[in-house]
Computed example of a mutant assay.
Amino acid sequence: MTKQLLAAAALLIGSNASANETLDFSMGSISGNTYAIGVQVAETVRANGDYNINVKTGGALGNLIMIGRDQAQFGHSSSGLALAAYNGQEPYEQRMENLRGIAKVMESSFQFLTLENVPIDSLAELREKQYPLKIAVGPRGRENELLSRRVLEANGISYDDIRDWGGRVEFISISDANSLIRDGHLEAVTILSGLPYAPVVEINSARQLQMLPLSDETVTTMQEQYGYTATEIKASTYEGIDSPVPSVAGGVVLVTNSNVSAETAYQLTQAVCSDQGRDRLATLSGSISSYLASIEACASGIGIPLHEGAERYFSEAGIVQ
């Protein structure tokens, strides 16, 4: 994050207590893109109205709980988690039907990567051969692990199956997986991220990877049951992976709740999706810049119903009816 954004964050956290409306933003870590998004949006909204805004750190899974309980009024998550929270699906125990969408700002693509010398070319072949795969799927309770498990289950494979075949399933971060793959202790990893993802580039530079495609049936299941979208990871996204790979993607979405006024939700949406808003956010990362090329991108694939204020903004822009 730039020094200017950090300075702005400090001003926002200590902002005018006599403002007409107080909003708490729950974003990601202070060094990450989503926190910077929160700072940018807060600056714009405060300039256009009488708001006291606190930008706080959080996480994609927990932010939805905070927003659903009205302990925060705005934050980031993913389209898949937002839909799960709205419907009361795993990892959420209760429905949060008051969640509402504002915009989508990035896409994260699911990547199922194995070392090139692993003798399987698909998940169907993994099952047929009962290959003893040694794989890292991310920490338990995170979206990456949840999606990895669902993709495997859609192909008739459980974690217990992999263990029964002589393989391993590790619930570790990508940085830990990197070390274990380099050392020969693991041979596969899953990740849900923007493209290209630097840790994958790093692994691939040391040990050549291949990416397993998702079948049409798996993609359809992820779409219909869990709210992901079909995508194709372009050839040469990573060196040595020379063909496009079918997969699914989830959006990095900005969310509020139905208690937030229509006018405030309108201001939040405008701060993100106007030409000026998209230009400001595009300076934060290449992933945001490449995705937010149009206002249409802002309104697509959010996963949950739009807030009425966001709906009004997109309607005025001719995006939704």
Rank of each mutant, 00 (worst) to 15 (best):
E97K: 13
E93T: 15
V118D: 04
R163M: 12
Q89I: 01
K104T: 11
A154G: 12
D160L: 14
R95V: 12
G167H: 08
L123D: 03
R163A: 14
R150L: 12
Y159W: 11
K104C: 09
V105S: 04
Q130T: 04
G167I: 05
K104S: 12
I102M: 03
E107H: 05
E170V: 08
I120N: 05
S158I: 07
N87L: 15
A82V: 07
R168I: 10
K104F: 01
R142E: 13
Q111M: 15
A124P: 00
F110I: 01
Q89A: 14
M106Q: 09
G166V: 05
L115M: 13
R100K: 15
V118N: 01
Y131Q: 02
I135L: 07
A177P: 01
L147D: 11
S122Y: 04
Q94W: 04
G166Y: 05
G156W: 08
L99P: 05
I120W: 06
D176E: 15
M106T: 07
K129W: 06
S78K: 03
G88W: 09
D160A: 15
E116G: 03
S148F: 10
G138S: 10
Y159Q: 10
R95E: 15
E170Y: 10
K134P: 02
K134R: 15
S175M: 13
A85T: 03
E125V: 07
Y92G: 08
I174F: 09
P119V: 09
S108Q: 13
G156Q: 09
Y131H: 13
N155Y: 05
P139D: 10
D121Q: 14
S77T: 08
Y131S: 04
Y159I: 11
K104H: 10
V137Q: 05
E125M: 13
D176I: 12
S108H: 07
N155L: 06
N155P: 06
S158H: 06
N178D: 14
V151T: 04
L123K: 03
N87E: 15
G167R: 01
L146Q: 10
A84C: 08
G101A: 15
L115Q: 12
P119E: 13
R127C: 03
I135T: 11
L115D: 07
I157K: 04
V151W: 01
S79D: 04
S77W: 05
S122I: 01
F112Y: 14
P119K: 07
I174W: 00
Q94T: 14
Q89V: 02
P139I: 09
R149N: 09
P139S: 13
S122M: 06
A136N: 10
E128Y: 01
S173A: 13
V118L: 03
G166Q: 06
Q130Y: 02
L81C: 10
Q111N: 12
E116I: 12
W165D: 06
P91Q: 09
Q130L: 01
S108F: 13
N98R: 08
S78H: 10
N87I: 00
A154P: 00
P132F: 08
I162M: 03
N117E: 13
Y159S: 03
V137K: 02
R163K: 15
A82L: 09
K104Y: 00
L126K: 04
N144D: 11
M96S: 06
L146I: 15
G80V: 08
A84K: 00
N98D: 14
L123N: 03
G88L: 12
A177N: 03
A177C: 06
D160H: 12
S175G: 11
L81E: 02
S122T: 12
L152I: 03
I135A: 09
R149V: 14
G141F: 10
